[in-house]
Simulated scan of single mutants.
Amino acid sequence: MMSNLFSVFDPTSTMNMPLNWTSTFMGLMFIPMSMWLIPSRHLMVWNLLTTKLHNEFKTLLGSNKKSKGSTFLFVSLFSLILFNNFLGLFPYIFTSTSHLTMTLTLALPLWASFMLFGWINNMNHMFEHLVPQGTPSVLMPFMVCIETISNVIRPGTLAVRLTANMIAGHLLLTLLGNNGPTITSSLLGLLITAQILLMILESAVAVIQSYVFAVLSTLYSSEVN
């Protein structure tokens, strides 16, 4: 019996070694094998997905020469988050994306690098973003404050959005699963059906949150060019 509902997200260790974080890189184990095998349906779907993402990110970044090659960074970011989100749905595998330690590690360096690049190379362009076009002169000081705050909290919103969505689904699955031993046999089928539907929903959330994180990072990058 769990003393705390959130204990399912606690990192576990073996011989005082935090081996649970190695699940972050488990997705990399499947990539090298696919490179040497005959192209399968799984590999063809993955290639199609990454190509579509590459074209979409290229459109979002525009035709700026400074941003060439950046799409591969965001496609890799999408792949890393997607692997971790899906692996967290398997039993006894640590969900690293449900911790702010992981999500902030992804969001903060990206945001900091965008800000450094923008303020060093395009300072006038960055100042223009603080006052939207058509803002009345009276509201300009307030708009600068609002835009500055919204810019500063961007890495936090990226990290918290991903973490909160991962935790919410896992908590629902845990709550329903804990009722299994005490529920009546007549309601057991309903519980299993609800769990299956929640797993389908969580699979969709895993893809959507990976896509949202990568797209927002791409949009933040396009603003500094």
Score class of each variant (00 low, 15 high):
Phe83Asp: 04
Leu37Pro: 00
Met44Glu: 11
Leu61Ser: 06
Phe72Ile: 03
Met126Tyr: 04
Lys65Pro: 00
Met26Ile: 02
Ala112Met: 15
Pro39Gln: 03
Asn124Met: 06
Lys52Ser: 14
Leu104Trp: 14
Glu56Pro: 00
Leu77Pro: 01
Cys145Tyr: 08
Ser23Ile: 06
Lys52Trp: 13
Phe94Asn: 00
Leu130Val: 01
Phe94Cys: 01
Ile93Val: 14
Ser23Gln: 07
Ser67Phe: 14
Lys58Pro: 00
Ile93Arg: 04
Trp119Phe: 14
Gly118Tyr: 09
Val144Gln: 10
Leu37Phe: 10
Thr50Leu: 03
Lys68Gly: 04
Ser98Gly: 11
Phe127Ser: 03
Ile120Ala: 12
Ile31Met: 06
Phe25Cys: 01
Ser76Trp: 12
Tyr92Arg: 08
Ser98Gln: 10
Phe78Asn: 03
Leu82Gly: 01
Ile93Phe: 08
Ser113Ala: 15
Gly118Leu: 05
His129Thr: 04
Leu61Cys: 06
Leu82Asn: 03
Met44Ile: 12
Pro132Met: 09
Met26Ala: 10
Phe78Lys: 02
Ala112Asn: 06
Thr59Glu: 12
Ser23Arg: 07
Leu80Met: 11
Met140Ser: 14
Leu48Tyr: 13
Phe83Trp: 15
Pro141Lys: 07
Leu82Asp: 01
Leu48Met: 08
Leu37His: 08
Phe142Gln: 01
Ile120Ser: 13
Leu61Gly: 05
Ala112Thr: 13
Leu104Pro: 04
Leu82Tyr: 11
Val131Ile: 15
Phe114Gln: 02
Phe127Glu: 09
Ser113Leu: 15
Gly88Pro: 08
Thr24Gly: 02
Ser76Ile: 06
Leu60Met: 11
Lys66Asp: 05
Met123Leu: 13
Thr22Tyr: 15
Leu116Lys: 12
Ser96Gly: 03
Glu56Ser: 11
Leu110Gly: 01
Pro136Met: 09
Gly118Glu: 03
Met35Lys: 07
Lys52Ala: 12
Gly134Ala: 07
Leu82Met: 07
Met29Tyr: 13
His54Trp: 13
Ala112Glu: 02
Asn121Ala: 03
Ile93Ser: 00
Asn124Ile: 01
Val75Met: 06
Glu128Phe: 09
Met33Val: 03
Pro132Arg: 12
His42Gln: 10
Phe78Gly: 02
Ile93Met: 07
Gly88Gln: 05
Phe30Cys: 00
Leu89Lys: 07
His42Trp: 10
Leu106Phe: 15
His129Asn: 07
Ser76Leu: 14
Pro136Tyr: 12
Phe90Ser: 10
Phe30Pro: 00
Leu116Ser: 11
Thr95Ser: 11
Pro141Asp: 03
Ile120Leu: 12
Ile31Trp: 09
Phe74Glu: 10
Leu49Val: 09
Gly27Trp: 13
Tyr92Phe: 11
Val144Glu: 05
Met143Ala: 04
Val131Phe: 04
Ile93Thr: 08
